[in-house]
Amino acid sequence: MIELHAVCRRFGAQLAVNQVSLTVAPGELFGLIGHNGAGKSTLFKLMLGLLAPDSGDILLDGVSIRGASFRDVRRRIGYLPENVVLYDNLSASETLAFYARLKGVPLTACAPLLAEVGLADAAARRVGTYSKGMRQRLGFAQALLGSPQLLLLDEPTTGLDPEGIHDFYRIVEARRAHGCTVILSSHILAEIEQRVDRLAMLAGGKLAAIGSVAELSAGIALPVAVELVSAATHHDTLAASLAAAGFACQTKPHGLSLAIARHDKGRLLAALAPLAATLADVRFIEPTLEAVFLGHRHASIHDTGASA
């Protein structure tokens, strides 16, 4: 379990991380979302103890990470930096052995890890000959050394193909099942919104929002988009019925589209029921995390505008 209490860190005049407080439970998969420069990587470096917070505290299992036992803390954390760079002159086995020695992990752990990330066949090849995806897999294997209690993964799926992403989450799930806490950052919102338990949105170093996808979506009450697919001859009839029920809609080549509040779904279905025969399809498009995210962004821009 990792806890951040009102953590601040500035670089010169810029507040890179501003009053961030959050707690991630054992076995939880936690996502960090934010634009470039929002403070994600800085937050990772603070959690690793690579950077000292200007104020606030970070606790790993209740113990401050900047105490005398930093070596012990580091051994319990697996870290995959953004755009991981390894040594081109070493083979994958040698690379993993090097980091294993540094972490005090038995070298017998290396071969199974390489197999787990799908690099068993390429283990003897120099990293210099590796593709971006293979380097990322090797970097991930490095983070898994010593079965850490906390995995900090900065943009872990960059450079991975769909199969690689699938493999990655399979391994993450297996680790979670053993109680490992996983914090990952991503800019591919669609990819992580289906997978994380909770997420935090960082904007300008501040925590703009934190919660599950459902909580965040509900919190800002974005409209649900509805698409009604029907033959052109029925469009006018449909539009009239909807207007009678109080729904405004737009005519599109394939049918009608409208945006409704979440609690109006039932009323819409009731209005459509008598015309069911004319409908080829009804699609509800839930607000995506991306939309939620943009909503929060607008809100925070609005906030700063109001306070300035």
Binding site: R74, N83, V84, V85, L102
Partner: peptide, 14 residues
């Protein structure tokens, strides 16, 4: 400059 220092510094050493 190459970027391998970040990972090295995250290891259990000062």
């Amino acid at each position: 400059e190459r970027g391998s220092l970040d990972l090295l510094l995250s290891m259990p050493l000062t």
